[in-house]
Every structure is written in structure tokens, then in C-alpha cells.
Amino acid sequence: MIDAATHQMTVTDHGQTVMTFTAGFGKPGFRTPTGTFHVLGKDAVITMTSCSANITCNPRNPNYYDLVVHWAVRLTGSGLFVHAAPWDPAIGRADSSHGCIHLSTEDAHRFYDFSRVGDTVIVKNAGGLVGGPSGP
């Protein structure tokens, strides 16, 4: 369960809490979608760009990004991930992503190693719509 209201991610296994992380979410205009998702895949390293996320291909646009991202767990085909965001000093305090769920590198690595394709991930209180723009 990932709760945008508390900026907490709680990982359970057979009903028992096994990990709790501080998380970051999408900023205004790029809200993380609320809903029930399933892990579609995992990438230890992936390049994420605002162009591939259909946000902007213009490097002068403030929402432009071209980042190498570690420990990415994919939740949607349109680009919603839980991933490491070492560039984000506001994890747990302010929402600054383009829709993805930010974790510290250590926490993202732990979640990446623990999660399996098909696992259920519930995001609540985030306010975004599934299928909207999404990225780091």
C-alpha cells in the first residue's frame, strides 16, 4: 500500500508488514494515479525521458528530463514506476515527480529485490488519473 496522504509505502507479505518506506509522488499537473496496479516488469537500470512519456521533447521546457534511473518497478504500460530518485531531496515532504513514486536508492533497491511480476500495488490518496502523463 502506498499512501500519498502520509508519504508512506508499506510492503506486506501474506498480511505481515515487512518494509515501510518514505515515498514521494507526482507534483500538481502530474499527480500519481490512485488505484490498484500490478507489477508488470522490473528494470535494474532504465533511461526515462519526458519525450517517451509524452510530456515534452523540448530540452528548454522545465518539465523536460532525460535520466538514468535505477531499481525501477513498472506499474503501468504508460510509464508509472516505483523507482530510486537520488536527485529528489523532498521525498516524504513534497511531491515533485512527473507521476512516478520516488523512493531513496536503498529503499528502491529493497523493493525491487522483494517485488515480483504480478504483485499487487495499491496507491491511495494520490489524486491522479490512470493514463495521464507519468515519469520521474
Rank of each mutant, 00 (worst) to 15 (best):
T76S: 12
D66E: 12
L80P: 01
N54I: 00
V73E: 02
W71Q: 07
S97W: 06
G79W: 02
L75Y: 00
A94L: 14
P89L: 04
N54D: 13
V82K: 02
F81R: 09
D66S: 14
W71V: 04
Y64N: 09
A85M: 12
C57L: 06
I91P: 06
C57V: 07
H102A: 15
N54A: 12
V73D: 01
P86R: 13
H98N: 13
H70L: 05
L67I: 12
H70W: 10
Y64F: 15
I55G: 04
P59R: 03
N61Y: 03
G77A: 05
L75T: 01
W87K: 11
D88T: 10
I101F: 13
A85S: 15
H98Q: 13
S52H: 06
C51N: 08
I55N: 05
V68P: 01
I101R: 07
T56V: 07
L75V: 01
A72Q: 05
P86Q: 12
S97A: 10
I55H: 09
D66T: 08
I91Y: 02
I91R: 05
P89N: 04
R74D: 00
G77C: 01
R93V: 13
S52C: 00
L80K: 02
D95W: 05
P89F: 02
Y65V: 15
R74V: 00
S78E: 08
H102T: 06
I91H: 05
S96P: 02
S96H: 14
A84E: 06
P86S: 13
S97P: 06
P59F: 08
V73I: 13
S52F: 02
V68K: 14
S52L: 06
S97G: 10
A84S: 15
A94H: 14
D88H: 10
V82Y: 02
S97R: 08
S78Q: 08
L67H: 11
S50I: 03
W71S: 07
N63C: 06
P89G: 03
D88C: 11
A84N: 05
A90Q: 13
F81C: 02
T49I: 11
W87H: 13
N61E: 08
L75K: 01
T56F: 09
N54P: 00
A94P: 01
